[in-house]
Structure formats: structure tokens, C-alpha cells
Amino acid sequence: MSQATVEQVKPVPPGRSPNVFKTTTPQQRKLRKQRKQSEDAGIRALNAKWGYLFIAPFFVMFLIFGLAPVIYSIFIAFFNWDPLADTQEWYGLKNFELLLTDDQFWVALRNTFSIWFFSTFPQLLMALGLAAILKNRFLKGSTFWRTMLLVPNITAVLAIAIVFGQLFGRDFGLVNLVLSWFGVTQHIDWVAHPLTSHIAIATMITWRWLGYNTLICLAAMLSIPQYLYESADLDGASKWQQFRYVTMPQMKNTIVFVLIVATIGGLQVFAEPLILGGNMSGGDSRQFSTLTLFLYEQAFVNNRWGYAAAIGILITVIVLIVSGINFLITRRIASEDN
């Protein structure tokens, strides 16, 4: 990424034909060469058999515990499969048909996207803002701030969900107490309503991941060449203008990376709603049931393994579609800039 960033600085659009780069600076040629070498040379003198031997543990383990279950899961999705009653009845596409007409599925889908929205975008904006503050080399105690930001990330979702469940409590929760200082005097029952419960869950996710994403953004910002800021400063650009016209364009790849990771993670949220509700139904009226929680409920509460497998496949399809859209949008933005 750092290499890619250096190239973007130059007026020559990257990624066209290779001979464009023959006319660029020696530094760029060196970078290209290095990258190419590491991409396809390897150490030729070293024997190939060691390569296979070294990757063997990974591939063996992955085939048994990663790929085989996934493939078998696709197989199960075509059955009415109940482990307790020991039924394995061929269902064809019926699980998928049932799923698309299942209100609980649509509720879970809506909740998942709502939580994803509230947890992703405010977090990304805050991460960018914090990274912009931390980027300043003249900031005192920068190592301390960075380390403190990462503290939430090391803790278990379970412990955090328990604490936040208490903080968001209706009668004695601190969140309502703090809100009352600002004039919100009624006791909000956070868990009881769709929107408030989504905000509570999104808060947990944001709390846990903000520091991590800030560090990712910070690393990308630090790799932006300093001279860009110096020349912008000479041109009289304000801090905001520098952020908008120097930092942001250079951060495109990172923002997309953060968004994709947040989306994959966001579509798989289940621990927070599970703890908040105390069971797998996601609240009394399923107001914060998510797709993954719905999957687990069907699999391990209702013992509908075929149905649960179908939900898993649908989640995967949604993840792939959203990642694909993300990718296309990035490409589009990149080509518009050129």
C-alpha cells in the first residue's frame, strides 16, 4: 500500500500499460522492480518440495476444518435435516423458498443492516478524525494515546456486552443518567425498541473497534508523503482543506478496506444482541435479532439444520454482493479521479 501511495502522487495514472512506467522516475522503477521480484521470483535456488511441505499443515487443516464443512453445509441446505428426530429428507430448494417468505428472516435482515449502518459510518468518521489528530508529529504522548485507544479491542464481547447491558439499563443505567443531565428526563428503555436497541448495539461495536480502525487509518495517513502537506501549507491551505484535498484522496484504499472489513464483520454480528437479550431470539419482539443470531437460533434452538445452512449461504451471498458493490464503487471513484 505504501508503494501504491507513492505512485499515486505522480501525474502518471497507475495501472495502465507497463511501458508508462519506463518513463517515470528511477525511484518508481526501483519500487516496481522490487515488487515484481517479490511477486514472482521467490528463491529459485530453494527446492520446491519444501514449499509444499511448508504449506501442507495449513492446507490439510483448512481442507478438513474449513472447506469441507462449508461444502457440506451447502449440501445440508437442500435437506430437511433435524438432528434430534434424525430426519434427513431431500427438500430441494424449499429451504430457500421458506426463507424468503419468512418474516423473521426479513426482520433479521433489516436489523442487521440497521446495526451495520449505525456502527460503521459514525465509526469511520470518528476514526478518520482521530487519526488526523494522532498523525500530528508534534502531539505529545502519541504512543500513550495510541495504546489507550486499542484497549477496548482486546476484551471479550461477552464481558463488554454485560457491562453495556448494565450501562444501558432503563432504571439504573448510567447512559440514561447522563442523558438526564442534558434534559432527557424520561427513562429510555433501550432494549425494548428497535431503533434504540440498534443504537445500543452499534455503540458496543463502535466502542470496541474504533481504536483499531483509527490505527489502520493512522498508518495509512503516516504513509502519505509529508511534502504534500508542506506545499499545501505554503499555498495557504487550511487544516480542513489539507484534510479534504490531500489526506482524503490518498486514503481511498484504506477507507474501502475498513468499510469492507466492517461490512463483513457487521453482517455477522450476533454476540452483542445475544447477551443483550439473554437468548437467541434477539429481544421479545425480535427487535434486535440479526442474521447470524437467526442462523444460530434455527440451528441450535429449533434444530432446523437445513434451514440454518440455507441462512448461512444467504449471508455469504449478501457479504459477497456488498463487497462487490464496494469494490465497484471504489473503481468508479478511482477512474473519475484519473
Binding site: F65, A68, P69, Y72, Y296, T316
Partner: peptide, 17 residues
């Protein structure tokens, strides 16, 4: 590519395994 697969997709067969 395998990193893109949601981990819960294979959880039932993994349990069977």
C-alpha cells in the same frame, strides 16, 4: 478468497465433525 467466507457458514458440519 477463503478469508471472505463467513465463519458461521460451516459451523453445523464442523459440529458434526
Amino acid at each position: 478468497a477463503t478469508m471472505m467466507l463467513p465463519s458461521q457458514l460451516g459451523i453445523i458440519p464442523l459440529y458434526m465433525l
